[in-house]
Simulated scan of single mutants.
Amino acid sequence: MADLNHIALFAKVVEAGSFSGAARALAMPKATISRKVAQLEEALGARLLQRTTRRVTLTALGRAYYEDAARGLASIERAKERIAASQAEPAGTLRITAPVGFGARKLMRWIGEFLQAHEKVRIVLKLTDDPIDLIGNGIDLAFRTGKLPDSSLITRRLGTSRLALVASPGYLGRRGCPQRIEDLKTHDCVAFGPSLDNEVWRLKGPRGWREVPVHARIAVDGSYAEVQAALAGLGIALLPLALIRHDIETGRLEQVLAEYGVDGGSMNIVYPSNRHMSAALRAFLDFIVVKTSSPSEQTPAQAANSA
């Protein structure tokens, strides 16, 4: 079996272009490096390098071996960095962005718990429903919903939440509770978006998908404002259960036409390449993954899927 240290020396020779260059970079005797690379070739039973007095060149087998070895060595280095980061005490400033509704109603509470556990960490939180250029704005991590565009960012899906029809007890007391999906046409609804006109909800029920034109009395741009409109009794709203779970449990909102809704609303975390990740960011990522997998924090849809 090839010695990992010999493989690393071989890679350094290739990258330096010569045994002399590798010796200078590593502060090792040239003869030692040459001998260990020769031992690697002997262990593999193949010549990896063609040697001349001034430089070395890769053989065909050597090139293929180097490409695979370089990827393996890079993976080992990343693993070492992860271990070092996990052993370091989280400290420093994290810059995070999240949608307004999720940030105000859920993330803020989680951040409070995280900061209590890590006294040397500080957080700058920007709540916005607009996409932000993470790298250009120096953002360490973003929470984003829905379908994500292709990018060089690392993406991790936290879970999904069903969109459900809800209204306040006050509204339902005044207007009654819809019994059929067609009844939505006669109710006031909260529209999500910039317009009151031509609002159509596409909902999945026992007999498949149904499209229902609804009458919007108010249109809001942002999930937080949509929740507040529903709580204020302004109509029936179509909202993520993950966002309003506590409101339903405490009776501030009631679910209507529970057999209808929309599945698949997702929450993701995105961040730049995890190479050289700080201990603070890694600790926060681990914390969020634990929180979103906790039964007490799951949406009803997530809990049903994990049962």
Score class of each variant (00 low, 15 high):
residue 103 G to F: 00
residue 103 G to Q: 00
residue 106 K to V: 11
residue 107 L to C: 02
residue 108 M to Y: 07
residue 108 M to W: 10
residue 110 W to F: 09
residue 111 I to R: 01
residue 111 I to L: 11
residue 112 G to Y: 03
residue 114 F to D: 04
residue 115 L to C: 07
residue 116 Q to M: 10
residue 117 A to G: 01
residue 118 H to E: 13
residue 119 E to H: 12
residue 123 I to M: 15
residue 124 V to D: 15
residue 125 L to G: 04
residue 125 L to P: 06
residue 128 T to N: 08
residue 129 D to E: 05
residue 131 P to F: 05
residue 134 L to M: 13
residue 134 L to K: 11
residue 138 G to N: 12
residue 138 G to L: 14
residue 139 I to P: 04
residue 140 D to I: 04
residue 140 D to H: 10
residue 140 D to A: 09
residue 141 L to I: 13
residue 141 L to Q: 03
residue 141 L to D: 10
residue 142 A to S: 15
residue 143 F to W: 01
residue 143 F to D: 01
residue 143 F to K: 02
residue 146 G to L: 10
residue 146 G to V: 08
residue 147 K to I: 13
residue 148 L to G: 03
residue 148 L to M: 12
residue 148 L to V: 11
residue 150 D to N: 07
residue 152 S to V: 04
residue 153 L to E: 05
residue 154 I to F: 06
residue 157 R to M: 06
residue 157 R to A: 08
residue 158 L to Y: 02
residue 159 G to L: 03
residue 161 S to H: 01
residue 164 A to N: 02
residue 166 V to I: 08
residue 166 V to H: 01
residue 166 V to G: 00
residue 167 A to H: 03
residue 169 P to Y: 06
residue 169 P to M: 09
residue 170 G to I: 02
residue 171 Y to T: 02
residue 173 G to V: 04
residue 175 R to T: 02
residue 175 R to G: 00
residue 175 R to D: 03
residue 178 P to G: 07
residue 182 E to I: 11
residue 183 D to Q: 12
residue 187 H to C: 13
residue 187 H to L: 13
residue 188 D to W: 00
residue 189 C to P: 02
residue 189 C to Y: 00
residue 189 C to I: 07
residue 190 V to L: 05
residue 192 F to G: 07
residue 192 F to W: 04
residue 192 F to R: 06
residue 194 P to A: 15
residue 194 P to F: 15
residue 199 E to W: 11
residue 200 V to E: 09
residue 202 R to M: 07
residue 204 K to T: 11
residue 204 K to W: 10
residue 207 R to L: 06
residue 208 G to A: 04
residue 208 G to I: 13
residue 209 W to E: 14
residue 209 W to Y: 14
residue 211 E to N: 12
residue 212 V to M: 14
residue 214 V to E: 08
residue 215 H to W: 11
residue 216 A to D: 11
residue 216 A to L: 06
residue 217 R to C: 08
residue 218 I to F: 01
residue 218 I to W: 00
residue 221 D to T: 14
residue 221 D to A: 07
residue 221 D to L: 10
residue 222 G to F: 11
residue 224 Y to W: 15
residue 224 Y to S: 05
